[in-house]
Design a protein around this nucleic acid. Structure first.
Lengths: 228, 228
DNA sequence: CCAAAAGTGTTTTTCCTACACCCATGT
DNA sequence: ACATGGGTGTAGGAAAAACACTTTTGG
């Protein structure tokens, strides 16, 4: 076993995190982009919020910090590690190994300013987020696939819902992630059967139609369930 | 945004891989251990095969290299990234961020010497691999959970099977991973229905009983399937 | 009274589970 | 001929899928 080939051998790489921060608005799955300006390779580009890990924080702590800084999000976000990207040339300036994260937040919990597209952060429909800098197209695709897979066998979508919502709201979120149409009656039967929702016995009124019962997720934790 | 807080800030961590190399022998799920001798914290301990990533290789390449070196395995192994462990004190000597991998190999494809327990590598039943150095108990547990989960909705067990096997062989492997008894008839119906096996129209003879039909996995790739 | 979304039940089909006996071979 | 693991079918119940009309409200 080799030992001590020197500091530059042991610590050759820069450690970073890249975050696929996602939300759902009006039945559309959105992802947060941030400007990337790194000539000559990526002048005036867009990419996922990302940044270096500090010596005194874990990768997840770094991801949370970066979502707040570059994603302009103050609210509590849900974080889940996605994959670690270690290709030699994923950053043309040098060796950067990035731990990718999925971050989810309900649109309704963002403050007005957080929802805005500012100069250095935009919410865009995930299928329109192409041509990103570095290997961020790959990270986005990996994140999208993972979210879709986990939506079918966990309660991860709870992290995209406001505290109160109607069954139709919930169905729309599932449909936007899975990109399928679900049968309203069967969806309601299944989601109520698995006992993860609590009816609030209050209704959301306001539209020119019958008011809808409000629900919340009973538990804040993401649980494994049967397939939806 | 901070820039250039110095090299020691940017490259503070050592990057490593730790590999949960697993196989199945006689219906038992085994994991490969290697000696760890790092006084004062881990004198004469055991741990998963692991080592540093080189500047010119990806994490996966490092994992493959380490399985060959520390795991004493020459054959082709299947690799799947597990999780990245970045706790500040997972290695008491300094900051080490480790990308964990699951590696699978059919017992039958190991050479005689690879199967042996040598001075610096042992195959042990996974439930007996406790008290490992560093955070390797956590990595082992994470790997075991992941393998169990993926066995139920992918064809990952194909990576633990020899090229030819009987349906009973396959059932034994599932049972050892899932730690349940499966119904022979139902297991056969399901596994044949999902169309991932090809019958070789040859039989394995030799025992004092009816010869068993031999099968192989139709495709070498790990596919998502319905739950088993 | 009209438009709009909420809410609800039944039938059909598919899938899962439980279960026991005969078959082909080697000794 | 006997011991051993290989191989097969069916019936009953549970879950999934398909499908259309009535309800409640605001305007």
């Amino acid at each position: 076993m080799k030992k001590n080939t020197g500091e530059q051998h042991l610590r050759f790489a820069v450690l970073a995190v890249d975050v696929a921060l996602m939300t759902v608005r009006d039945g559309r799955l959105l992802i947060r982009l941030a400007p990337v300006h790194r000539p000559p390779h990526f002048p005036n580009s867009k990419g996922l919020p990302g940044g270096l890990i500090d010596p005194k924080e874990t990768a997840e702590e770094a991801a949370l910090r970066i979502v707040k800084a570059k994603g302009h999000v103050e609210s509590t976000v849900y974080m889940e590690q996605l994959y670690t990207f270690s290709e030699l040339n994923r950053d043309p300036r040098g060796r950067v190994v990035a731990v990718g994260y999925i971050a989810l937040i309900p649109w309704d919990e963002l403050s007005t300013s957080e929802r805005e597209d500012t100069d250095d952060a935009w919410w865009v429909p995930i299928e329109e987020a192409r041509g990103l800098a570095y290997d961020h197209d790959l990270i986005r695709k990996t994140a999208h696939n993972r979210l879709r897979a986990r939506a079918t066998y966990t309660t991860i979508v709870s992290k995209l819902m406001p505290t109160e919502f109607t069954l139709t709201d919930l169905e729309r979120v599932y449909e936007s992630i899975l990109k399928t149409d679900l049968d309203k009656r069967n969806f309601r039967k299944k989601i109520l059967k698995i006992q993860v929702l609590t009816a609030l016995n209050r209704k959301r009124t306001g539209g020119a139609f019958r008011p809808a019962e409000l629900y919340r997720f009973t538990s804040p934790s993401v649980k494994e369930i049967e397939i939806l």
